[in-house]
């Protein structure tokens, strides 16, 4: 059995990538994996529906962390998908038998160790297989505190679920040891990219995306409002976000960056971002109270809060961009 250190993470993809890279020789925290991949974002895409609602995301698209880190750290990584279930299952068996640490894309719905009520058809849940005992795979699922087990049949079903962003048995693993990068080069580049996304001149992304979302919420009638707001809050606060729509995890990244770059001003920016994250949680709380009927349902009030939040984030990312 290999020596593998499981770590509890807030988000599956950054947790998996941090663990893979750490195992390959470069100690990497989850916030550093998240920040280096420029994974902080905002998107509101009315045309793409998730469970019948427009896509609202507080982070980059799935796979962006994997791709972002591959570039930033010049990782040698293999990514494989499979047409046939049999081949995909056999390939995982073989790699695990060789002692390879393998990351998988799965559907959370078919993972038996998930609590029943958290099993939704979410096809981009990432986890790591670090061993096998009989018919069970030993799994490091970053959003769980401890390691878990999963029978082969269930894991295969989860790997070959169909639907939006179907995993197609996707597996990925590092192929060589990871060398320490030039932090002073890649961290500022990653921060600049995040600022660019957040300040992008398009209606569906960054602070403009937040304003578009505010406009959409303002127009909701009394019947649509509770479900729409519930959807927004789920994307922001449900398990996998680290709270405050990923703003807290990015603040942790800025603190690490301040150390590595000897740039104490980034510590101040981290504190500002924690405050911004707190404001996101205030919005979530206000929306939840309206959904529960403990406060009158006023979509306009949420829209106003969102606009203030957009202004705050715009100022924040403009000043952050000027620093790096």
């Amino acid at each position: 059995m290999m020596t593998f250190q499981h770590r509890h993470a807030s988000h599956c993809e950054s947790g998996v990538m941090a663990a893979l890279v750490t195992h390959a020789g470069l100690p990497l925290s989850e916030p550093m994996a998240f920040g280096l991949a420029s994974a902080l974002s905002f998107a509101y895409i009315p045309l793409v529906k998730v469970g019948g609602f427009p896509l609202v995301a507080y982070r980059a698209l799935p796979h962006a962390i994997t791709k972002g880190l591959r570039g930033a750290l010049s990782l040698r990584m293999a990514v494989e998908t499979f047409r046939s279930v049999g081949q995909g299952a056999a390939r995982l068996d073989a790699l695990v038998a060789q002692g390879q640490l393998v990351a998988l894309q799965t559907s959370a719905f078919w993972l038996p160790y998930f609590p029943e009520d958290l099993r939704f058809h979410f096809n981009v849940h990432n986890l790591i297989v670090f061993g096998r005992e009989g018919d069970d795979f030993l799994i490091s699922d970053p959003v769980f505190e401890e390691t878990v087990r999963c029978p082969k049949a269930d894991l295969t079903k989860a790997r070959f679920a169909k639907g939006l962003m179907a995993p197609k048995g996707r597996i990925y693993y590092t192929q060589s040891a990871v060398q320490a990068p030039h932090w002073e080069k890649i961290i500022p580049a990653a921060i600049r990219k995040t600022c660019r996304t957040m300040l992008a001149p398009v209606f569906f992304a960054g602070v403009k995306g937040i304003r578009s979302l505010a406009r959409a919420i303002e127009k909701l009638d009394a019947e649509q409002a509770p479900r729409f707001l519930g959807h927004m809050v789920r994307m922001q606060e449900e398990i996998g976000t680290g709270g405050g729509g990923f703003r807290f995890i990015y603040a942790a990244f800025l603190q690490e960056a301040a150390q590595l770059l000897q740039l104490p001003i980034l510590e101040t920016k981290a504190d500002e971002l924690v405050t911004i994250g707190d404001e996101w949680r205030e919005i979530a709380l206000a929306a939840a109270m309206m959904i529960r009927g403990r406060q009158p349902m006023e979509p306009k009030r949420i829209a106003t809060l969102l606009r203030a939040q957009a202004d705050r984030e715009e100022a924040f990312f403009r000043s952050l961009r000027a620093l790096v």
Binding site: H8, A9, S10, E30, P31, D117, L118, V143, E145, G230, H231, V233, R234, E237, E238, I239, G242, G243, F248, I249, A251, A252, Q255, E267, A270, D271, V274, R281, A284, L285, A288, I291, R292
Partner: peptide, 28 residues
């Protein structure tokens, strides 16, 4: 328990296990 990031007394933001928040429970 899920990991959320929060600021400790030393000012550092790090993961802290949480048993849940009513807001998340309401929307789920």
């Amino acid at each position: 328990r899920k990991a959320v990031y929060a600021r400790g007394v030393d000012g550092k933001v790090r993961p802290v296990p949480s048993t849940g928040w009513q807001v998340e429970e309401i929307v789920t």
